[in-house]
Computed example of a mutant assay.
Amino acid sequence: MRNPASAGSPTPLRQRSFRFLLIATIGGFSGYALLLPVVPLWAVAGGAGEVAAGATNAVFMLVTVLTQLVMPWLLARVDCRALFALGTAVIGAPTPLFALSSDLWVLLGVSALRGIGFGLLTVTGSALTAELVPVAQRGRAAGYYGLAIGLPNVALLPAGVWLSSRIGFEPLFWASGVVPVVAALSVIGIERVRIREQERAAPAKTASLLPSWTIMTANTAAAGGLTAFLPLAVDPSIAPAALLIFAGMTMLGRWLAGHLGDRFGQRRVLAPSVLLGGFGVLLIALAAWLADPVALLGAGVFGAGFGAMQNTTLILMLERVDSATASTAWNIAYDGGHGLGAIGFGVLIAASGYPVTFAVAGAVLIACRALAIRRWG
């Protein structure tokens, strides 16, 4: 159903505090994206094996999720802006310590510290996105916030590896540390907000997040499997282009869903998004079976559905519980789903191969449509 209240409302970009939030978000996620593939390379350069090198990112994500679990408690006691600034700064401040040594214990310790920062940043960023704009603009605000997250990932994930081979690891560690710390200063332009409290039906309200949370986790697991195994499943010559298309369409899908959701209602956007993502993964399964460039199309279709689903599930969660709880649940689904996807895909691939694994994942996403169309209060 069309939402007339939102159709003529101004863009969230007119909110000064929201603009400062986007600036800080770009800076914080730049420090994250630059180093995600670089720290394992630095570990290998120091003599660590592939498993130990991968543990640096695993520890980072584990600490991120553990931090996210305590965020509702923290947000009930500490100013959201302060936690956002702290998280953005902590993404960067410990980073130059990587240059001290490539010993694994140093890398794991610094990664754990940065994981605390990332956990703070992700939850408070989503919560502030919900609180700094009128409710009728939340979908569009989340879409712009998605762009602020996606742009550094698209541009800097490949750039980090390239820069490490051109300027060296140590200058890159310093640059990756300075940018988020400077970006944290943007908090001075963000107004103080109070997390909107919902009526006290906490258990029922929290349980109502389960359908959206399940959809989000399943889709993010598929995305985690895609990014980990697509280069091995399809022609290596087209895999980089497919991943770039996936990242770009994810941003576009999230931005477009924000506008459509505010205009027509979130539920009308969610089911098509889930189906689109599922069909995209099935196309990737076909590409893995036939070694066909249809992987490019599949990556684009899945990316569009995945981005739209991200935005819509976040807003649906925000409609049911306070922004601290919704943001925490959504971010745990995102970060935990990525890890589950990489592990689950690895197990299935070992047992049945790439085409079957991607086909199963696509079927699971399409089955999630039943949750997308379910009405819950």
Rank of each mutant, 00 (worst) to 15 (best):
Phe60Asp: 00
Ala141Trp: 07
Ser126Pro: 01
Ser176Pro: 05
Gly339Ala: 14
Ser102Ala: 14
Leu209Gly: 01
Val154Thr: 15
Ala359Cys: 04
Ala184Lys: 11
Leu104Asp: 00
Arg194Gln: 15
Ala233Ser: 10
Asn311Tyr: 13
Arg369Gln: 05
Arg194Pro: 03
Leu348Ala: 14
Phe20Cys: 06
Leu35Tyr: 07
Leu316Ile: 11
Tyr144Leu: 13
Pro272Cys: 09
Arg196Thr: 12
Val135His: 12
Phe60Val: 03
Leu163Phe: 09
Ile284Thr: 04
Ala130Gly: 03
Ala223Ile: 08
Ala55Ile: 04
Leu151Arg: 14
Gly253His: 04
Ser165Arg: 15
Arg200His: 10
Ala24Arg: 05
Gly49Ile: 04
Gln310Tyr: 15
Leu256Thr: 13
Val234Glu: 01
Ser165Thr: 15
Pro4Arg: 09
Ala183Lys: 15
Gly168Ile: 10
Leu209Lys: 10
Ala361Gln: 08
His338Pro: 00
Ile195Ser: 05
Leu243Tyr: 11
Thr67Gly: 04
Ala342Val: 04
Leu275Lys: 14
Thr220Met: 07
Thr56Phe: 02
Arg320Asn: 06
Leu275Asn: 10
Gly337Val: 07
Gln310Ile: 11
Thr206Phe: 13
Ser208Tyr: 11
Phe279Ile: 13
Val187Ala: 11
Ala257His: 06
Gly265Thr: 08
Pro134Thr: 10
Asp79Asn: 14
Ile315Met: 12
Ala370Ser: 14
Arg267Thr: 07
Val179Pro: 00
Ala304Pro: 03
Ala207Phe: 12
Ala55Gln: 14
Ala222Arg: 05
Asp103Lys: 09
Gly253Tyr: 05
Pro152Asp: 02
Met309Tyr: 01
Pro272Gly: 05
Arg77His: 14
Val347Ile: 15
Arg77Met: 10
Phe229Lys: 10
Ala207Cys: 02
Thr250Ala: 10
Gly143Ser: 07
Pro231Tyr: 08
Gly277His: 05
Ala85Asp: 00
Thr328Cys: 03
Ile332Leu: 12
Ala202Phe: 12
Ala285Thr: 09
Arg200Ser: 09
Val193Trp: 12
Trp376Leu: 13
Ala55Glu: 09
Thr328Phe: 02
Gly362Phe: 04
Val59Leu: 13
Ala242Ser: 14
Ala326Lys: 09
Leu147Gln: 11
Ala257Cys: 08
Trp289Met: 13
